[in-house]
Amino acid sequence: MAILTVENISKNYGKIQALKAVSFSVPKGCVYGILGPNGSGKTTLLGIIMNVLKATSGTYKLFDEVATDAHRKKIGTLLETPNFYHYLSAVRNLKISAAIKEHGEEDIENVLNTVDLYKRKDSPFSTFSLGMKQRLAIGAALLGNPDVLVFDEPTNGLDPVGIAEIRILIKELSAKGKTIIMASHLLDEVEKVCTHVAILKQGSLLASGTVKDVFQESDIVQLAAADKEKLRCILAELNNFLRLDEVGGNLELSYESGTANLEEINRYCFDKGIVLSHLQIKKSNFESKFLELTN
């Protein structure tokens, strides 16, 4: 069962195309990261799914059905920034959220304890720090113990301890079988908590799938020689590598993990009349893979 299915969603703001025919599917029980640099369309996409923005074209389904407000009541959502009545206390704000979701108020104390705001439950929202506001928004999303949670930049404004706590919370929720859709520009965050990922850049979907598939490890061989252009020409004749790039004055050959052979490459270059001045192998990490995809 797919919790969310996005089909060719596009969104234009005047002449700016914020989303370009994005399609992907979120399976039940996963932690799905929507990853991309600022302005890539992550929040716009979640805004459309939560009905606060209108898609220019395309459709989406929730729980394998045409999305309705009743479906949205089953989803706990933190979108962009915490949005609460500034003059009301934490507990009164949660009462409003609970009433809209048609849940009882019995959950509120529990949720305030989970996000460590119980002691400040009667303080007006306007007196909260950014981190406390964020925690209250996460608390509101947890009301009614929903099976699906949507978090847009959930660790925004939190201190390192708060960030760690939220990540632990997300993992705990995931372990309980909840489906979590999380937008983030933080690679580290996605790497640590997500099982699946969709990568957006300037409104386009670059890749989607399991984290393991999308961020498949590879071997990167760095090479340098006095005659770089000749080196580039002879390397291009090789046929077992994935990519040839120039990075920081060196040439880099990408191979599937475990398939690069330095001795063979060195011999091949020597036979072609090139003496390498630099030859090194390194493993691609999550960050380099992301940069590779987005650049």
Binding site: D69, N83, F84, S97
Partner: peptide, 17 residues
Amino acid sequence: TFKTNRQNIIDGWSRNE
């Protein structure tokens, strides 16, 4: 101003409501 209308919709109200 405080985007609470968005929160109401996100929480499950329809725009019409």
